Amino acid sequence: MSRPLVFAHRGASAYAIENSLEAFDRALDMQADGIELDIQTTKDDVPVVIHDINLRRLTGKNGLVSSFTLEEIKKLRVGKLFVRKFKGPKILTFDEFLAWHKNHLVPLNVELKESFLENEKALKIAVEKCRDIEGLHISSFHPVLLEKAKKIAPEIESAIIATKFLNWDELDKIPFIDTVHANKTRYYKERYLEACLRQKKKCRFYNINGSEKYIATPHKAVIGWITDYPQIVRDAQQHQY
Protein backbone atom coordinates (compact mmCIF):
# COMPACT_ATOMS: atom_id res chain seq x y z
CA MET A 1 0.00 0.00 0.00
CA SER A 2 1.37 3.44 -0.93
CA ARG A 3 1.30 6.08 1.77
CA PRO A 4 -0.87 9.23 1.56
CA LEU A 5 1.05 12.21 0.22
CA VAL A 6 1.81 15.06 2.61
CA PHE A 7 0.84 18.50 1.31
CA ALA A 8 2.27 21.55 3.03
CA HIS A 9 -0.62 23.92 3.78
CA ARG A 10 0.21 27.30 2.24
CA GLY A 11 3.75 25.97 2.33
CA ALA A 12 5.33 25.27 5.70
CA SER A 13 3.08 27.97 7.13
CA ALA A 14 3.88 27.17 10.77
CA TYR A 15 7.47 28.25 10.10
CA ALA A 16 7.31 31.01 7.46
CA ILE A 17 4.85 33.54 6.05
CA GLU A 18 2.06 31.62 4.36
CA ASN A 19 2.01 31.32 0.56
CA SER A 20 5.51 32.77 0.27
CA LEU A 21 8.50 31.33 -1.57
CA GLU A 22 10.22 30.88 1.80
CA ALA A 23 7.27 28.79 3.02
CA PHE A 24 7.35 26.67 -0.12
CA ASP A 25 11.11 26.15 0.07
CA ARG A 26 10.92 25.20 3.74
CA ALA A 27 8.12 22.75 3.02
CA LEU A 28 10.34 20.83 0.65
CA ASP A 29 13.23 20.99 3.12
CA MET A 30 10.82 19.38 5.61
CA GLN A 31 10.09 16.47 3.24
CA ALA A 32 6.65 17.60 2.09
CA ASP A 33 5.52 15.61 -0.94
CA GLY A 34 3.49 18.48 -2.33
CA ILE A 35 2.37 22.07 -1.89
CA GLU A 36 -1.09 23.46 -1.11
CA LEU A 37 -1.63 27.08 -2.13
CA ASP A 38 -4.51 29.51 -2.54
CA ILE A 39 -5.22 31.81 -5.47
CA GLN A 40 -7.42 34.87 -5.76
CA THR A 41 -7.79 37.20 -8.74
CA THR A 42 -6.95 40.87 -9.06
CA LYS A 43 -9.20 43.49 -10.63
CA ASP A 44 -7.32 43.07 -13.90
CA ASP A 45 -7.78 39.26 -13.98
CA VAL A 46 -4.34 38.20 -12.73
CA PRO A 47 -4.29 35.15 -10.42
CA VAL A 48 -2.26 35.87 -7.28
CA VAL A 49 -1.18 33.58 -4.45
CA ILE A 50 -3.03 34.68 -1.33
CA HIS A 51 -5.63 33.08 0.93
CA ASP A 52 -7.83 35.95 2.10
CA ILE A 53 -10.06 37.94 -0.19
CA ASN A 54 -9.42 40.96 2.05
CA LEU A 55 -5.82 42.19 2.18
CA ARG A 56 -5.96 43.52 5.73
CA ARG A 57 -4.70 40.51 7.71
CA LEU A 58 -1.58 40.05 5.61
CA THR A 59 -0.78 43.57 4.38
CA GLY A 60 -2.60 46.02 6.64
CA LYS A 61 -4.47 47.36 3.60
CA ASN A 62 -8.23 47.08 4.09
CA GLY A 63 -9.70 46.11 0.73
CA LEU A 64 -10.56 43.19 -1.49
CA VAL A 65 -7.87 41.62 -3.66
CA SER A 66 -10.34 41.76 -6.54
CA SER A 67 -10.69 45.54 -6.24
CA PHE A 68 -6.97 46.19 -6.80
CA THR A 69 -4.89 45.90 -9.97
CA LEU A 70 -1.74 43.82 -10.00
CA GLU A 71 0.35 46.99 -10.03
CA GLU A 72 -1.36 48.12 -6.83
CA ILE A 73 -1.06 44.68 -5.22
CA LYS A 74 2.67 44.58 -5.95
CA LYS A 75 3.23 47.76 -3.92
CA LEU A 76 2.18 45.91 -0.76
CA ARG A 77 4.24 43.76 1.59
CA VAL A 78 2.93 40.93 3.72
CA GLY A 79 3.56 40.44 7.40
CA LYS A 80 1.96 39.88 10.79
CA LEU A 81 -1.30 41.67 11.66
CA PHE A 82 -0.83 42.10 15.39
CA VAL A 83 2.77 43.29 15.34
CA ARG A 84 2.11 45.49 12.30
CA LYS A 85 5.36 44.62 10.60
CA PHE A 86 4.31 44.43 6.98
CA LYS A 87 7.90 44.25 5.77
CA GLY A 88 7.84 40.74 4.36
CA PRO A 89 7.78 39.59 0.74
CA LYS A 90 5.48 40.82 -1.98
CA ILE A 91 2.42 38.80 -2.94
CA LEU A 92 3.31 36.29 -5.63
CA THR A 93 1.51 36.05 -8.92
CA PHE A 94 0.49 32.54 -9.89
CA ASP A 95 2.95 32.79 -12.78
CA GLU A 96 5.78 33.57 -10.36
CA PHE A 97 4.85 30.56 -8.29
CA LEU A 98 4.72 28.34 -11.38
CA ALA A 99 8.18 29.57 -12.39
CA TRP A 100 9.41 28.39 -8.96
CA HIS A 101 7.56 25.11 -9.43
CA LYS A 102 9.39 24.34 -12.69
CA ASN A 103 12.47 23.80 -10.55
CA HIS A 104 10.56 21.80 -7.92
CA LEU A 105 8.26 19.39 -9.73
CA VAL A 106 6.10 18.27 -6.82
CA PRO A 107 2.34 17.66 -6.69
CA LEU A 108 0.18 20.76 -6.27
CA ASN A 109 -3.14 21.43 -4.55
CA VAL A 110 -4.39 24.74 -5.99
CA GLU A 111 -7.36 26.12 -4.08
CA LEU A 112 -9.65 28.43 -6.06
CA LYS A 113 -10.91 31.17 -3.75
CA GLU A 114 -14.09 33.22 -3.75
CA SER A 115 -12.94 36.14 -5.93
CA PHE A 116 -13.25 33.85 -8.96
CA LEU A 117 -17.00 33.51 -8.40
CA GLU A 118 -17.60 36.87 -10.05
CA ASN A 119 -14.87 36.65 -12.67
CA GLU A 120 -15.16 33.84 -15.21
CA LYS A 121 -12.43 35.34 -17.37
CA ALA A 122 -9.93 35.11 -14.52
CA LEU A 123 -11.12 31.60 -13.68
CA LYS A 124 -10.45 30.44 -17.24
CA ILE A 125 -7.00 32.07 -17.16
CA ALA A 126 -6.14 30.35 -13.87
CA VAL A 127 -7.38 26.91 -14.90
CA GLU A 128 -5.59 27.08 -18.24
CA LYS A 129 -2.36 27.71 -16.36
CA CYS A 130 -2.95 24.48 -14.43
CA ARG A 131 -3.24 22.31 -17.52
CA ASP A 132 -0.41 19.94 -18.33
CA ILE A 133 1.09 20.18 -14.82
CA GLU A 134 1.56 16.61 -13.68
CA GLY A 135 0.21 15.80 -10.23
CA LEU A 136 -1.85 18.99 -9.92
CA HIS A 137 -5.38 19.03 -8.55
CA ILE A 138 -7.80 21.91 -8.00
CA SER A 139 -9.82 22.32 -4.81
CA SER A 140 -12.50 24.74 -3.67
CA PHE A 141 -15.28 25.31 -1.16
CA HIS A 142 -17.41 26.44 -4.12
CA PRO A 143 -18.91 23.64 -6.27
CA VAL A 144 -19.75 26.07 -9.07
CA LEU A 145 -16.06 26.89 -9.51
CA LEU A 146 -15.14 23.22 -9.73
CA GLU A 147 -17.92 22.56 -12.21
CA LYS A 148 -16.73 25.39 -14.45
CA ALA A 149 -13.09 24.35 -14.04
CA LYS A 150 -13.95 20.79 -15.06
CA LYS A 151 -15.55 22.07 -18.25
CA ILE A 152 -12.42 24.05 -19.06
CA ALA A 153 -10.00 21.22 -18.24
CA PRO A 154 -11.76 17.85 -17.76
CA GLU A 155 -8.45 16.09 -17.21
CA ILE A 156 -7.63 17.96 -13.99
CA GLU A 157 -8.61 16.30 -10.72
CA SER A 158 -11.14 18.35 -8.76
CA ALA A 159 -11.65 18.27 -5.00
CA ILE A 160 -14.60 19.68 -3.09
CA ILE A 161 -13.79 21.02 0.38
CA ALA A 162 -16.49 19.61 2.62
CA THR A 163 -18.98 21.82 4.44
CA LYS A 164 -22.15 20.94 6.32
CA PHE A 165 -24.03 21.18 3.02
CA LEU A 166 -22.18 18.28 1.41
CA ASN A 167 -24.22 15.08 1.18
CA TRP A 168 -21.64 12.33 1.56
CA ASP A 169 -24.16 9.69 0.56
CA GLU A 170 -24.70 11.29 -2.83
CA LEU A 171 -21.15 12.06 -3.93
CA ASP A 172 -21.64 9.92 -7.01
CA LYS A 173 -24.32 12.38 -8.16
CA ILE A 174 -21.73 15.14 -8.50
CA PRO A 175 -19.93 14.17 -11.72
CA PHE A 176 -17.44 17.05 -11.64
CA ILE A 177 -16.02 16.00 -8.23
CA ASP A 178 -13.21 13.43 -8.00
CA THR A 179 -12.07 13.86 -4.41
CA VAL A 180 -13.19 15.25 -1.05
CA HIS A 181 -11.03 17.44 1.17
CA ALA A 182 -12.25 17.56 4.74
CA ASN A 183 -11.47 18.83 8.21
CA LYS A 184 -10.08 15.93 10.24
CA THR A 185 -11.95 16.83 13.43
CA ARG A 186 -15.38 16.79 11.89
CA TYR A 187 -15.02 14.22 9.14
CA TYR A 188 -12.34 11.62 9.86
CA LYS A 189 -15.04 9.18 10.85
CA GLU A 190 -16.00 5.78 9.59
CA ARG A 191 -19.30 6.81 8.02
CA TYR A 192 -17.68 9.49 5.82
CA LEU A 193 -14.66 7.39 4.93
CA GLU A 194 -16.81 4.44 3.96
CA ALA A 195 -19.13 6.68 1.93
CA CYS A 196 -16.12 7.77 -0.14
CA LEU A 197 -14.90 4.22 -0.59
CA ARG A 198 -18.35 2.99 -1.59
CA GLN A 199 -18.73 5.69 -4.25
CA LYS A 200 -15.15 5.37 -5.54
CA LYS A 201 -14.08 8.77 -4.26
CA LYS A 202 -10.86 9.54 -2.42
CA CYS A 203 -10.18 11.81 0.57
CA ARG A 204 -7.54 14.21 1.78
CA PHE A 205 -7.74 15.64 5.28
CA TYR A 206 -6.54 19.01 6.53
CA ASN A 207 -5.61 20.47 9.93
CA ILE A 208 -3.36 17.44 10.41
CA ASN A 209 -0.64 18.12 13.00
CA GLY A 210 1.17 14.78 13.26
CA SER A 211 -0.32 13.60 16.55
CA GLU A 212 -3.16 11.64 14.92
CA LYS A 213 -2.87 7.91 15.51
CA TYR A 214 -4.43 7.10 12.14
CA ILE A 215 -1.56 8.68 10.19
CA ALA A 216 0.41 5.45 10.43
CA THR A 217 -2.57 3.27 9.49
CA PRO A 218 -4.85 5.39 7.28
CA HIS A 219 -8.21 4.34 5.91
CA LYS A 220 -8.17 3.00 2.35
CA ALA A 221 -10.01 6.08 1.08
CA VAL A 222 -7.26 8.47 2.23
CA ILE A 223 -4.72 9.63 -0.35
CA GLY A 224 -3.37 12.75 1.31
CA TRP A 225 -2.75 14.83 4.43
CA ILE A 226 -2.72 18.65 4.39
CA THR A 227 -0.63 20.16 7.18
CA ASP A 228 1.27 23.18 8.46
CA TYR A 229 3.85 20.73 9.88
CA PRO A 230 5.11 18.53 7.03
CA GLN A 231 8.20 17.20 8.80
CA ILE A 232 6.21 16.07 11.85
CA VAL A 233 3.63 14.31 9.68
CA ARG A 234 6.32 12.61 7.59
CA ASP A 235 8.01 11.42 10.77
CA ALA A 236 4.69 10.03 12.01
CA GLN A 237 4.31 8.07 8.80
CA GLN A 238 7.60 6.31 9.32
CA HIS A 239 6.01 4.01 11.90
CA GLN A 240 4.17 2.26 9.08
CA TYR A 241 6.02 2.98 5.82
Rank of each mutant, 00 (worst) to 15 (best):
G79P: 05
I125S: 05
E147F: 13
I53K: 13
L55V: 06
N109K: 09
L145G: 02
S140C: 06
I138P: 07
F82Q: 07
P154E: 00
I53G: 04
G79M: 06
D132L: 13
V83I: 14
I177M: 09
L70D: 00
L70Q: 02
P175C: 05
E157M: 15
V83A: 01
F97E: 00
L108K: 07
T59P: 09
G79I: 05
K102P: 09
H137Y: 15
H137S: 01
A149F: 07
A162E: 02
I160C: 07
T69S: 14
L136Q: 01
E170N: 14
T59C: 09
L145A: 01
F116L: 06
I152C: 03
V127I: 15
I177K: 02
K85S: 06
R77K: 14
G88L: 01
F141S: 08
I125A: 10
E114K: 15
P143R: 07
R84F: 08
E157F: 14
L55S: 07
R131W: 04
N167H: 12
E96T: 12
K74N: 03
E128N: 15
I125G: 05
K129E: 06
L105R: 13
L70E: 00
G79D: 01
L81W: 13
S67R: 11
K85M: 10
F86I: 05
I160A: 10
L76F: 05
K80Y: 10
A122K: 09
D132G: 11
F165V: 11
G60T: 11
I161Q: 06
N54L: 02
E111T: 13
K90F: 04
K75V: 05
P154V: 12
S67V: 07
K151R: 13
